[in-house]
């Protein structure tokens, strides 16, 4: 069943005066077209990766789907209803650190557990989720006392505890070191298998998309259009260096303008 349905999405930004025009913006116009006629649909419970060059409007698109931003034209339907504002049923994990730095890990995750009214129940649930993401023993730590990977885990716990219908993730592991990023990638596979949430995941890392996605939506340069939608009917773990996945990988590299063999 289609859960997210985007139809004819356009986004135009007003160029701010005095700022150098970014490439892709029309020289003679004061306005700048970022998204052009974007349409796609996403199945319930699937893992969709958005792949595209940096600055192509991926983040803008995800913010529009989540209701933080309004499209200039077109509309987004979630479960048949038009999105107009962010909803607590769908959680967004931003590119930058999103834990409240004035709260401990425990207090932060509790923000996601506000639907549980019984305080004892709430605490035990929060502790369970912190344990789930491997933060047992760090309950009373403040975000600045945790490593980058731990902060991301706490944020994932805060999102999962709400049992979100949709989980939006905007390049969540971009700022992490290589090994931590790979670990987080593995854990996302587990999260996807354990929880029923639909996941919309932005990345510019082709391998990450191949490892994680049930579907990859490739966006082009500004003004972005949907260049290609690729379905990945493969189980986990995936070996992307062999077989069909390796062919797909080559194809995607080509689609993204990397022509020489990699």
């Amino acid at each position: 069943m289609n859960q997210v349905e985007a139809a004819g999405i356009y986004k135009v930004y007003r160029e701010r005066r005095g700022r150098p025009r970014s490439p892709g913006c029309c020289i003679f116009s004061e306005r700048c077209l970022v998204l052009k006629n974007i349409a796609f649909s996403i199945d319930e419970g699937s893992f969709t990766c958005f792949l595209g060059p940096s600055g192509c409007g991926k983040s803008t698109l995800l913010r529009i789907i989540a209701g933080f931003d309004r499209p200039t034209d077109g509309r987004v339907l979630i479960n048949g209803l038009e999105v107009t504002a962010p909803s607590p049923e769908h959680v967004f994990i931003f590119q930058e650190d999103g834990l409240f730095p004035w709260m401990t890990a425990l207090e932060n995750v509790s923000i996601g557990a506000r639907h549980i009214s019984n305080p004892d129940e709430k605490i035990s649930e929060v502790l369970e989720y912190l344990d789930l993401v491997g933060l047992k023993g760090f309950e009373d730590y403040y975000p600045h006392e945790l490593s980058g990977g731990m902060r991301r885990r706490a944020e994932v716990a805060r999102a999962l505890i709400t049992n979100p219908g949709i989980l939006f993730m905007d390049e969540p592991f971009g700022a992490l070191d290589f090994v931590t990023r790979m670990q987080m990638r593995e854990e996302m596979v587990n999260v996807h298998e354990m929880f029923e949430s639909t996941i919309l995941f932005i990345t510019h890392d082709i391998d990450e998309a191949l490892h994680l996605g049930d579907q990859i939506i490739i966006l082009g340069e500004r003004p972005s259009t949907v260049k290609s939608v690729i379905t990945l009917p493969f189980g986990h773990p995936r070996d992307i260096s062999r077989g069909e996945l390796a062919d797909l990988r080559k194809e995607i590299y080509f689609l993204m303008g990397l022509h020489t063999a990699l």
Binding site: S87, P88, F94, R114
Partner: peptide
């Protein structure tokens, strides 16, 4: 702005 957006996302309103 991220904090404001997150607060809105988790439905924090009014006194909270």
């Amino acid at each position: 702005k991220t904090y404001i957006r997150i607060a809105a996302n988790f439905g924090l309103k009014g006194r909270d």
